[in-house]
Write a protein that binds this DNA or RNA. Structure first.
Length: 434
RNA sequence: GCCCCCAUCGUCUACCGGUUAGGACAUCAGGUUCUCAUCCUGGAAAUCGGGGUUCGAUUCCCCGUGGGGGUGCCA
């Protein structure tokens, strides 16, 4: 039987990180097996399933490059089919009507009462449950709309899904779903239930724990490949010591047998580290594009005060952890209107004598026959001997010129800013220093 | 309450009966460097508890404890 899997989210306007992880695993599984990965939009909730919400979902898929092999299926278009199956089930006595809860008659599917129900979960292993511990369940509401269980199974049958890979929270549902498959005379798919992604408290990861939706990671400046790679490592490991991998390597190595069945905590620190690794290795063109977008969004000019853009990007790219910290980290290279970091000012500019020192430096820079990496370094070295250490010279200059206590190498920075501006900034900082 | 599942450093994980229990993030201490980032070296850091099975258990089984999930005319 050929491998056909699906990602079946309901479009709510946001795609939860745990949900997209399921999509990632489905995608990897399909690609590894050379099968099909399909998208089914479970848009039966008319309230929340707006065109906007669907667009957001599709954008997330695209952003993470989770390409699907057939046109997306919209569940809302299958309602007639769901109800037809329900009617058939009722006609065959497999479901019955009852006014449960007094809101009108609904259709209830009959679960077996004797024996044991079981299935082999590809991640969790042999799963079993006594039939008496299960309950009949509603498949069509009193307002004649199909319930999730029915719609989900009917669609899986129609789409000839071979493997259902989904979150842990569906384990119990599986016993119901399998009975539904059997009632429809269909072979149940293979199941694989993925562990949940939890927060520091071990609770399901939610908005309260930080970025919880794919869109938020995008906004915060994470690269899709980095997020993808990080997500893959939550509940799965390729074996050996590999962590940062290309998609092809992941596809090659991915198997459900290597999936864990215990919950995984979402560690933002590691994601951030990984993102930095991906950004550093990113082609310059892609980085430049993202850089420009972030600067524009922050309202910062995108033409360097001097030199060409790539000369500025050289020292910036390897230092960038997330795209959204770009503007603050290099604004001083693009405008004179840059802020001074308070802590840096009090530590490096406030000490007595700094004002005088900066004015001297300004004069000294002015007097240099040429303003280069070598000449500035030579000058600073000379000064440092008189002042007891490079640090005493380098730090105040750095803060004066960039407003920050960290960044590219000082001489690189000086040349990037240019002599004229360096001198002006030193004098201006001298005033701040008092 | 009842049902189901899970359990290795702080975190993500490797190990599929015999290892000084490995790696990564984070962290700490050095080194390189003008800062930061990078890079290099080193440190601290784990098998939830109790029973079995076995010559030998992190690994297999049982119980306990802890955590999670389910128990909707939500999905």
């Amino acid at each position: 039987m050929s491998v056909r899997v699906r990602f079946a989210p309901s479009p709510t306007g946001n795609v939860h990180i745990g949900n997209i992880r399921a999509a990632v695993f489905n995608w990897l599984f399909a690609r590894h097996a050379g099968g099909q990965f399909l998208l089914r939009v479970e848009d039966t909730d008319r309230e929340r399933s707006t065109p906007e919400a669907i667009r957001t979902l599709l954008e997330c898929m695209k952003w993470l490059d989770l390409n699907y092999d057939e046109p997306a299926v919209y569940q809302s278009a299958q309602t007639e089919r769901h109800l037809a199956v329900a009617a058939d089930l009722e006609a065959r006595g497999l479901a019955y009507r009852e006014n449960k809860g007094g809101t009108g008659e609904c259709l209830i599917f009959r679960m077996p009462q004797d024996g044991e129900l079981r299935f082999n979960d590809l991640v969790k292993g042999d799963m079993k449950k006594k039939a008496k511990d299960t309950q009949d369940f509603v498949i069509v509401r009193s307002d004649n709309t199909p319930v999730f269980h029915l719609a989900n199974v009917v669609d899986d049958v129609d789409m000839t899904i071979s493997h259902v890979i989904r979150g842990d929270d569906h384990v119990e549902n599986t016993f119901k779903h399998i009975e539904l498959f059997k009632a429809m005379g269909a072979e149940p798919p293979q199941y694989a239930h993925l562990p949940m992604i939890v927060n520091n408290m071990g609770k399901p990861y939610s908005k309260r724990d930080g970025a919880a939706f794919v869109g938020e990671f995008k906004e915060q400046g994470y690269m899709p490949d980095a997020l993808f790679n990080f997500l893959v490592l939550l509940g799965w490991a390729p074996g050996g010591d590999r962590e940062i991998m290309t998609r092809d390597e992941m596809i090659e190595a991915f198997t459900l047998e290597r999936c864990k069945s215990s919950a995984a905590r979402f560690d933002t620190k590691k994601l951030k580290w990984m993102n930095g690794e991906y950004i550093a290795k990113q082609p310059r063109d892609a980085f430049r594009e993202e850089f420009l977008a972030r600067m524009k969004a922050a309202g910062v000019p995108t033409t360097p005060l001097s030199g060409d853009l790539d000369a500025v990007l050289d020292p910036i790219q390897p230092r960038t952890k997330t795209f959204n910290d770009i503007p603050a980290n290099c604004i001083y290279l693009f405008t004179e209107e840059f802020p001074f970091d308070e802590a840096a000012v009090s530590k490096r500019l406030k000490p007595a004598g700094t004002a005088t020192f900066l004015r001297e430096m300004s004069d000294a820079f002015e007097a240099l026959p040429e303003f280069t990496l070598e000449s500035t370094e030579q000058l600073v070295h000379a000064k440092s001997e008189a002042l007891g250490g490079m640090g005493a010279v380098v730090h105040p200059i750095r803060v004066a010129v960039s407003g920050l206590s960290e960044g590219p190498g000082l001489f690189e920075l000086l040349v990037l800013v240019g002599r004229e501006r360096v001198c002006a900034r030193c004098r201006k900082a001298a005033e701040i220093a008092g």
